Amino acid sequence: MAVPKRKTSKARRDRRRSAKSRLTIPNIIECPQCHETKLPHRVCAACGYYDGKEVISVE
């Protein structure tokens, strides 16, 4: 069984663990139909349009 030869320092350990915390903020765009904010390449939750066409009917 593999055993570490030396103790991993706290700085090295924490640097490796902090790589997961570097998440990016998602892009938010304006819907061309209703001008609400939405995620790109997704149907607008406010009006139901995608790519200029009504995909779902929103009441």
Rank of each mutant, 00 (worst) to 15 (best):
P4R: 07
P4G: 01
K5L: 10
K5Y: 12
R6L: 04
R6W: 15
K7S: 10
K7Y: 05
K10T: 07
R12I: 15
R13M: 13
R13C: 02
D14V: 03
D14G: 07
D14T: 10
D14E: 15
R15T: 06
R15S: 12
R16F: 03
R17E: 08
R17P: 00
S18P: 00
S18W: 04
K20S: 15
K20A: 15
R22P: 00
L23F: 09
T24G: 04
I25D: 07
I25C: 05
N27Q: 04
I29F: 09
I29C: 03
I29L: 14
I29G: 01
C31D: 11
C31A: 06
P32R: 03
Q33C: 04
Q33E: 14
Q33V: 06
C34R: 00
H35T: 09
L39S: 11
L39Q: 02
L39E: 02
P40C: 07
R42G: 01
R42Q: 14
V43P: 01
C44D: 01
C44F: 01
C44G: 07
A45F: 01
C47A: 12
C47N: 04
G48C: 03
G48S: 02
Y49M: 12
Y50L: 14
Y50F: 15
V55K: 14
V55T: 08
I56E: 07
I56H: 08
V58H: 01
V58L: 09
E59C: 04
